[in-house]
Structure formats: C-alpha cells, structure tokens
Amino acid sequence: MSLVWTLIAGFLYAEIAVVLLLVLPVASPYKWNRFFKSKFLAMIGKQSHIYFFVIMSVLVLLLLDAIREMRKYSSTDNVGEVHLNVEMQHSMRLFRAQRNFYICGFAVFLVLVIRRLVTLISSQANLLAQSEASMKQAQSATAAARSLMTDKADKAKEATEDTTLNELNKLKERVQELTSDLNREKKDKEAVKSQAESLNREYDRLTEEYSKLQKQITIGAVGKADKDE
C-alpha cells in the first residue's frame, strides 16, 4: 500500500472512531455542543466549508482513480495466453484497485455521515436547551397563575354569593308574580266556564220555547185549514 492510500486508510479508521464516539452514549448532547463551540473548533469552523470541500475533492478524485484502475484490470481479454506471473500481478493490481475503491467510498460516505451527525447533535442540544428554558418559564407562569387564580377565586366566591342571593330574591319575586298570574288565570277560566254553562242553559231554554212555538203554529195552521174546508 502506497503512502497516499495508507493515509486514506488511516483517515477512514479515524472517521470510524469519530462516528462511534458520536453514536455511542459517551457524552450528552450538551457536552458535545460545548466541545463543538470550543475556541479551537470555532477557529477551524470559520473555514470548515473549505476543508470539507478540499477533503471531499481529494477523496472523490481518488475514488475515480480507483474506479479507473478497476475497469482497467477487470478486462479478461487474452488471459489464457499470458504467463502465470503476469496473471498474478494482474489479479493483485485488480484487488488493490477494488480495495482502494472501498476505502475511498467508505471515507466519502463517513465524511457525510459525520457532518450530518454534528449538525443533528448541535440541533438536539439547542432544542433541549430551549425546552428546558420553556419548561422553567412555564413553571414560573403556572405558579403565578395559581396565585392569581387563588386570589380571584376568593374574590369571585364572595361576589358569587352576593350575586346568588340577588338572583334568589329575583326568582322568588318572579315566582310570586307567576303564582298570582296563575291564580288570576284560574279565576278567569272559572268565570268563562260558568258563563259558558249559563249560555248553554239559555240556549236549551230558547230551543225548547222555539219548539213549542213551532208546534203551536203547526197546530193553528191545521185548524184553520179544517175550518176553510
């Protein structure tokens, strides 16, 4: 393995160690966030995007070179005609190209993973800090609201008692008014009922008189007819 690929492999192992440190519960998000915001990392962070693009460019170039080597040594033309030594060298170079491809590929992938993990851990630490601050504000607001509610409840209780007494007095007066109205209506109903009964009796009497008169007129008309004959 050449010096360049030895450095790339060491970089890959370092990336694996960093990912394990970030993923395993070694430290809380607060500690990681303080570490990310330390003075040393803050100085590096000002130019982190430059470092990121430089590293990614180098890794991508090496990855493309490894792909080129793989395609070059993957050709199996005239394999049966070459010497065994040449075939072994060909297979060894193909193996090295594939190894370099996997090293570069995983290195590129872990660079993106570490960048994303750092962003997520920082966001989680900020969200936890905001949630704690919100919880403290909510607790203080709840305590203040409870004290205000207690004071208001006492005042409201006194006001409610006075209001209830006034409403009860009004309801009693209203009940008395409705009772008097009901009694008046009952009296009016009884008067109308007695008046209707008297009208019925008068109607029956007039009907009887009408019947008697009609009989008399009928009898008189029959007698007159007999006299005329």
Rank of each mutant, 00 (worst) to 15 (best):
E177K: 10
G105V: 02
A196S: 11
V82N: 11
V86I: 14
M92N: 12
A145G: 03
A225Y: 11
T163Q: 10
L127T: 15
E167S: 09
L148R: 02
E132L: 14
I121C: 10
Q139R: 14
E185V: 00
E173D: 09
A191F: 02
D151S: 05
V54P: 01
G10Y: 07
Y30V: 01
V19C: 11
L41V: 13
A97W: 10
Y73W: 15
A66I: 09
E81I: 07
Q89M: 03
R205E: 13
S38P: 03
A145P: 01
H83P: 00
L84N: 08
A9W: 04
T163V: 05
V19Q: 08
S75A: 05
Y30H: 08
A138C: 15
Y203A: 12
V222Y: 11
I121A: 08
G105R: 08
L22D: 06
V79G: 05
L94Q: 08
S198G: 00
K172T: 11
D188W: 04
K187V: 00
A221S: 15
D65I: 08
E15D: 04
A144L: 06
L22E: 03
G223K: 06
E177Y: 07
R174G: 00
M88F: 05
I8K: 01
L168F: 02
E177H: 09
E81V: 13
K136Y: 14
T218I: 00
V26E: 09
